[in-house]
Amino acid sequence: MLQQSAHTLIQEQTNNGLTGDLSLTNITNLLQFLSLSCKRGVIKLVRHPGNEEGSVYFVAEELVSAVSGNLSGIEGFADLLGWEQGTFRFLPDVGCAEKTIGLSVQHAILEAVTLLDTRANEKTMHQNTELEKRSLSMEQAGRESSEVMNSLLEVPGVDAVVVIGRDGFVIESAGSSSRVNIEELGASLAHAINGVEEMGGELNVNSFQDMFIEYGRAVIMCRPVGDAVAAIITPDASKLGVIRHKTKKLFTELGQSF
């Protein structure tokens, strides 16, 4: 019987099958119900709208094979799990020639759900990456350094932001700090960064990425932005983690201007 053509049997048994609507149940429930009843056969599905066809072959608790359009095996089965509208017809005692799954129904469902999750995550990640790229390119095209610096000022805990050239020239600043003189900071920071970079060179550990200096009355966080260096002044280190996290993207954006 297993070797018998399904096509032939469908024609022979069109009036004997169990039929229904996918909006009232779903393929998982249906398959679990039929397999637990030790049935064997094929569930033929037609998706609405579009009239795409699919089928699931099983023998008692073993899922033998599944087909959805051009997809077969677990991929085909996973695709069928997403069908929410359409009709089904169960044709008992229909076998298929090729075993493409060969797992227990429960195991096959788990495999298919895992596959769907992985795909959904990949899709979300891809969409997020695209969105980030698009938003970054829009920002690059539209935002000036002063706007980006104002966004940096909105990060909780940031008192002032200053961009200095490697020679200590204060290129731009935003906000104010009663703790630090911005002009003097430019010169002092340039000297400090020169020292730090020389040390990096001597130690052969590449160029500096981040620098935090914690004083009693202020914390200064620096990061290279293009050919310049941006520094953030904050009153204490309590919000440093949040600042570091929230400013990362803005520093990258700021780097486009220098």
Binding site: G165, R166, D167, F169, I171, D227, S257
Partner: peptide, 21 residues
């Protein structure tokens, strides 16, 4: 060039500096 623009500033010609090079 950095030195030249520092000289500019020192003599009061223009408080200026290089942003990108």
């Amino acid at each position: 060039l950095r030195g030249a623009f520092a000289a500019f500033t020192a003599w009061g010609w223009a408080k200026s500096g290089i942003v990108q090079l």
